[in-house]
């Protein structure tokens, strides 16, 4: 039996979900996993690794290098290096769309707008400020307030006929606005679409966008209608990778590949 084919692992420990990607040296995605991050980041990352390796059909000793990213990037026992999620999202997006783009990433706790050039180099980035308005946390808060499951939101928003406009910057104030709309008899479908619109507005005001726009993140993965709404607002199509929630993890796996190659170069030069 020959040695297992080498793989590279990227793990993105976000505030809400942990995502993991297993890639081979030809940059093919062989396996992945997504789990709630929970309170024990180390254990969650381990369980994601098991799932990812199983899906890829490779043993743990096939891993040549691992890079972790995200909020809990320092809480991954099996990773050898870290990169910020900003760099990893940029790299992951360039993997799917090798061109100059503005990336809108809507995560559980923070939003990012990242601009990359034709060569995949990052030009600039912006993260949301202190407030969680416009993030996945905002939708989670609102789903609890409206007493509707998070996974039903996309379908509800699509059925809206007269969207409710919410004006506030603040998650708490938006909650009050939602209550006012419920009191005045507005339909849940219209309120949910209003929430989606609010998310898009909060993100759009962070930075200007370049011609090509990519959207990523868990909110986009679970609510594709947000992408359609955003495309309507900016007036042209928005690109979405095959696995929008995995771009950070894929970027981290690609970094793992680069770092490993550099190390090999250094070792061969020294030898």
């Amino acid at each position: 039996m020959g040695a297992a084919k080498p793989v590279y692992v990227g793990v993105d420990v976000g505030s809400s979900r942990t995502k993991l990607a297993v890639m081979d040296d030809r940059r093919n995605l062989l396996g992945f996993a997504v789990r709630k991050s929970g309170t024990d980041f180390y254990a969650t990352a381990e369980r994601c690794l098991e799932t990812g390796l199983q899906m890829a059909g490779v043993p743990a000793d096939a891993i040549r290098y691992c890079v972790s990213t995200g909020y809990g990037r320092k809480n991954v026992a099996f990773s050898q290096d870290t990169r910020t999620e900003i760099s990893c999202h940029a790299k992951g997006c360039y993997y799917y769309f090798p061109m100059a783009v503005s990336i809108i990433d809507i995560g559980g706790q923070d939003n990012k707008i990242i601009k990359i050039d034709d060569n995949g180099n990052r030009i600039s980035f912006k993260m949301n400020r202190k407030c969680a308005a416009g993030t996945g946390a905002f939708l989670e808060e609102m789903s609890a307030r409206l007493d509707i499951p998070l996974e039903d939101m996309d379908g509800l928003a699509r059925r809206s006929t007269e969207m409710v406009k919410l004006g506030s910057f603040c998650t708490v104030f938006s909650g009050t606005e939602v209550l006012e709309n419920i009191r005045s008899g507005k339909k849940v479908t219209d309120i949910v679409k209003g929430l989606f619109f609010s998310v898009i507005k909060r993100v759009m005001e962070m930075d200007s966008l370049t011609e090509k726009v990519v959207m990523t993140g868990g909110v986009v993965a679970n609510n594709p209608y947000i992408v359609e709404m955003a495309a309507e607002i900016i007036g042209h199509e928005i690109l979405v990778p095959e696995y929008p929630q995995l771009t950070g993890a894929i970027g981290a796996a690609l970094y793992a590949m680069d770092i490993r190659a550099k190390l090999a170069d250094t070792q061969s030069t020294e030898a």
Partner: peptide
Amino acid sequence: TNVEAFIE
């Protein structure tokens, strides 16, 4: 995160 990303 912002500072580390900026240095990257």
